[in-house]
Amino acid sequence: IGSLMYASIFGNVSAIIQRLYSGTARYHTQMLRVREFIRFHQIPNPLRQRLEEYFQHAWSYTNGIDMNAVLKGFPECLQADICLHLNRSLLQHCKPFRGATKGCLRALAMKFKTTHAPPGDTLVHAGDLLTALYFISRGSIEILRGDVVVAILGKNDIFGEPLNLYARPGKSNGDVRALTYCDLHKIHRDDLLEVLDMYPEFSDHFWSSLEITFNLRDTNMIPGSPGSTELEGGFSRQRKRKLSFRRRTDKDTEQPGEVSALGPGRAGAGPSSRGRPGGPWGESPSSGPSSPESSEDEGPGRSSSPLRLVPFSSPRPPGEPPGGEPLMEDCEKSSDTCNPLSGAFSGVSNIFSFWGDSRGRQYQELPRCPAPTPSLLNIPLSSPGRRPRGDVESRLDALQRQLNRLETRLSADMATVLQLLQRQMTLVPPAYSAVTTPGPGPTSTSPLLPVSPLPTLTLDSLSQVSQFMACEELPPGAPELPQEGPTRRLSLPGQLGALTSQPLHRHGSDPG
């Protein structure tokens, strides 16, 4: 009997000691992992102490058991019943959930998450997105703005933001810190809205009876308010094209079509300037034949640059190039080494500058006005007194259609001029006259002087055409309008007829 009692007592005591040691061994194993994590990542002392304290409290609170892992091991129907039991206190005593059906309560219970916070733990920081609604079931918390405590909340209090009033989550206007050990039930806004969409009859009752104890939403960050730039940057990543407008005076608003859609830094370009900076079609017209890549860069430059609305530039004389043409100036200075066709295309550029300027006046029909002061630039669209967005969009579309028509007509005119030049060069190729044979009589004449090349004649003739079109064909006081194609086609051969009437002889060394 004594040996039996000794064996039973010894066996029970050893089993008890073994169970104690097993729990202690698990605790030390998990604690060792936490300390190894702290050492590996070199976490500083204040945060390291918070980690160790939280682990110790969580171990004593749950005995080292992962409740979520245990809950996920059950089937979904059983999980709903378990969640309904775990959140029964909240669902029974909170006013917004009263009167809900059994199915609605089960769906809500599945969406709730339980959070346990030790003292000093910050649940929400200032500036964080308010993605959830919090219900306090135990403990107390404090809300701070800077170093000032603005509120202390306790059991059955609710904090967050009214989700039904805002389409997008706002930002917190303060820090939420736990004063004691707290148990909180939180539900994400997407989950709550999903359940309320499934039960629309409960939705009206819920929003009407929901009383948020403390609204954390920062009202200064609401979209459309003066301080909402940061919020707009976070939620409006896919922005449309940006529009900046110059201020319109009362006198300017009476004149229709007073602005032109141009790229940034293009205030001095012609009315047909689009795409790359520098001139019509993204580059100076005089350098068009020598740089074919300008047409390839036109599309990307047009689509990537934001639109700006600026006044037209001052008018340019008909014979003056659009500006920024070092290529043609070098050719004029060193005409001995340049291609003979460069002079002809220089005359073509003069005609283009004249036609572009006159067509700009035809479509816009307003006098040039000086540029406004820099303080009046970049007025935002949302400022008071601005035109409605639809009106601005319609004006932009009208300007775009005008620019497209202008570009089409300029292309047709350019093709006409090039065809005339090619026809003239085919009839009378460039050549130098040879020395004529002296006559049989004693009164022999001296050799004839060489005839100037055709490109120079073409430049003079085209300059005469531009001056003739600019000065004589337009009646005084009438708006400057571009001439039609047949009129220009008839004027060019008439001007060139006198020049080509002389018999030109080919030089023996000319390969053409």
Rank of each mutant, 00 (worst) to 15 (best):
A132C: 14
F135Y: 07
I136N: 01
R138T: 11
G139N: 01
I141K: 01
I143P: 01
G146S: 13
D147L: 03
D147E: 10
V149R: 07
V150Q: 08
V150L: 13
L153F: 01
G154Q: 10
K155W: 01
N156V: 03
N156S: 09
I158C: 11
I158K: 02
E161L: 02
L163S: 10
N164Q: 08
N164R: 07
Y166T: 09
P169W: 05
G170A: 03
S172H: 01
G174L: 08
G174T: 11
V176W: 01
R177C: 06
A178W: 01
A178R: 03
T180R: 03
T180G: 08
T180H: 03
Y181E: 09
D183L: 11
L184D: 01
I187D: 03
H188M: 06
R189S: 06
D190F: 04
L192M: 08
L192S: 01
L192C: 03
E194M: 10
Y199I: 01
P200A: 05
P200W: 03
E201Q: 07
E201W: 01
D204E: 11
F206H: 01
W207D: 01
L210F: 14
T213Y: 01
L216W: 03
R217K: 04
N220G: 06
M221Y: 08
G227I: 10
S228H: 13
T229G: 10
L231G: 09
L231Q: 10
E232T: 12
E232G: 06
S236T: 11
R237T: 14
R239Y: 08
R239N: 08
K240W: 06
R241K: 10
K242I: 13
K242C: 10
R246T: 09
R246I: 13
R248Q: 12
D252C: 06
P256T: 10
E258F: 12
S260D: 14
L262Y: 12
G263C: 10
G265M: 12
R266D: 14
S273M: 10
R274N: 14
G282M: 12
S286V: 11
S286Q: 13
P289A: 09
S291N: 12
S291L: 15
P292D: 09
P292W: 13
S294F: 15
E296P: 09
D297M: 11
P300S: 12
R302N: 15
S303K: 13
S304W: 13
S304A: 12
S305Q: 15
P306I: 15
R308L: 07
R308C: 07
L309H: 05
L309I: 04
P311I: 15
S313Q: 13
S314P: 15
P315W: 15
P315Q: 10
P318G: 15
G324Y: 01
E325N: 15
P326E: 13
D330S: 07
E332P: 09
E332D: 12
T337G: 10
N339K: 05
N339A: 13
L341C: 09
S342P: 07
S342F: 12
S342D: 13
A344R: 08
G347C: 03
V348R: 07
N350M: 03
N350V: 02
N350Q: 09
F352N: 12
F354L: 09
F354N: 13
G356I: 08
G356M: 08
R359A: 10
G360D: 07
R361W: 14
Y363K: 07
Q364N: 15
E365Q: 09
R368V: 09
R368M: 10
C369N: 15
A371T: 10
I379Y: 03
P380G: 11
P380N: 05
S383C: 13
S383R: 06
P384K: 15
R387F: 13
P388W: 13
E393I: 03
R395G: 09
A398Q: 13
L399D: 01
Q400S: 13
Q400N: 05
R401V: 08
R401M: 10
L403H: 04
N404E: 04
T408N: 03
R409D: 05
S411C: 15
S411D: 03
T416C: 10
T416L: 07
L421V: 07
R423Q: 12
V428M: 01
V428C: 06
Y432F: 13
Y432L: 09
S433M: 09
S433C: 14
A434N: 09
V435I: 12
P438K: 15
P440G: 08
P440E: 13
P440H: 09
G441K: 06
P442F: 09
S444M: 10
S446V: 12
P447D: 08
L449V: 07
P450V: 09
P450G: 10
V451N: 13
S452M: 13
P453C: 08
P453E: 08
L454A: 12
L454P: 15
T458R: 11
S461R: 09
L462C: 15
S463G: 09
S463A: 11
Q464T: 10
S466H: 10
M469E: 12
M469L: 08
E472Q: 07
L474E: 13
P476I: 12
A478W: 05
A478V: 11
P479N: 10
Q483E: 15
P486H: 15
P486R: 07
P493Q: 13
G497F: 04
G497R: 09
A498C: 09
L499K: 09
T500S: 14
P503G: 11
L504S: 10
L504V: 10
R506F: 05
G508S: 08
S509A: 09
S509M: 09
P511T: 07
P511C: 04
P511G: 09
